[in-house]
Amino acid sequence: MVRFRTGSPNFPPGIRILLILNGLIYLAQKLLPDMTGWDVTEWGALHHWSSPLFKPHQIITHMFMHDPQNFGHILFNMFALWMFGSILENYWGTKRFLNFYIICGIGAAVVQVLMIPYEAARFAHASYVPEAWPQVIQAYTEQYSMIGASGAIMGVMAAFAYLFPNTELFIFLIPVPVKAKYVIPVYVLIDLFGGFGRQTGDNIGHFAHLGGALVGIIIVIIMNRTNRRNFY
């Protein structure tokens, strides 16, 4: 969907690790349920802390999971990770980039979990009579699950737009290049509208995207002010 005008970045080691890890886990999601009966997706997906399905490891594992029935989900995420993340890793170094990526993913998870009751309430109010709202909200919250690297990748994209604002990108169906400082904020606005403007759920973790972008931009601003070359 997006490509650089000046050419394609390479594959630094951190990006290779993330691409391979996501690919292997995607294969496990598709194959292991039939081979072993183990539902890898349910085990690794992020649930609300009030759900009996919640486990602490899900704060990390959810960002390496993708919809096993939708190859486009992992394909687009990994493309965006490679395109924007390669530049950041080459600029920061591998350890710094991987730390940043994981922190953005955790931030996305925390924001999304905090907003699950809000989404549950909106869903209940839009679809059910008032007498059923408490039961619907409880069921929605307990059954909710989230997978995907999008939150962490939104952090990467936000950092890229901050550090390289005038980089020109080609966007699908737009015949002229658009600078990153204009493209990435549009994605954020779409998630703001998707999170607060829609009446019912659309199966997209908009608040995770917003959380990842927020954490990413905060980290990169702090790093820029202190001129730190590493954080561990």
Rank of each mutant, 00 (worst) to 15 (best):
G7E: 00
G7D: 06
G7N: 01
S8P: 05
S8N: 12
N10I: 09
P12N: 07
P12Y: 05
I15P: 01
R16S: 10
L18W: 02
Y26V: 05
L27W: 04
P33A: 05
D34F: 08
T36V: 03
G37Y: 07
G37T: 08
G37R: 02
W38Q: 03
V40C: 05
T41P: 03
G44N: 05
S51Y: 00
F54V: 02
H57G: 02
T61A: 03
T61M: 04
H62Q: 03
F64N: 06
Q69V: 04
H73P: 02
I74M: 00
L75C: 09
A80M: 01
F84H: 04
S86C: 00
I87L: 10
W92Q: 03
G93M: 01
G93D: 04
G93Y: 02
G93W: 01
R96K: 13
F97H: 00
I103F: 04
G105E: 07
I106F: 07
G107P: 06
A109M: 02
V111Y: 02
M115L: 02
I116L: 04
I116D: 04
I116C: 01
I116M: 06
E119D: 09
A121K: 12
H125G: 12
A126K: 10
V129S: 15
W133H: 15
V136M: 13
Y140G: 01
Y140W: 06
Q143R: 15
Y144P: 08
S145E: 08
M146L: 14
I147Q: 08
G151S: 08
I153C: 08
G155W: 04
V156W: 06
M157K: 07
A158N: 04
F160N: 06
Y162F: 15
F164K: 11
P165N: 13
P165Y: 10
N166M: 12
T167Y: 13
E168P: 11
E168C: 12
L173A: 15
I174H: 15
P175C: 12
V176K: 14
P177T: 15
K179H: 13
K179L: 08
K179C: 10
K181Y: 14
Y182M: 11
V183H: 10
V186Y: 15
V188P: 07
L189I: 14
I190V: 15
G194V: 05
G194S: 07
R198D: 07
R198M: 11
Q199N: 13
T200D: 10
T200R: 14
G201H: 14
G205T: 09
F207L: 07
F207K: 04
I217C: 05
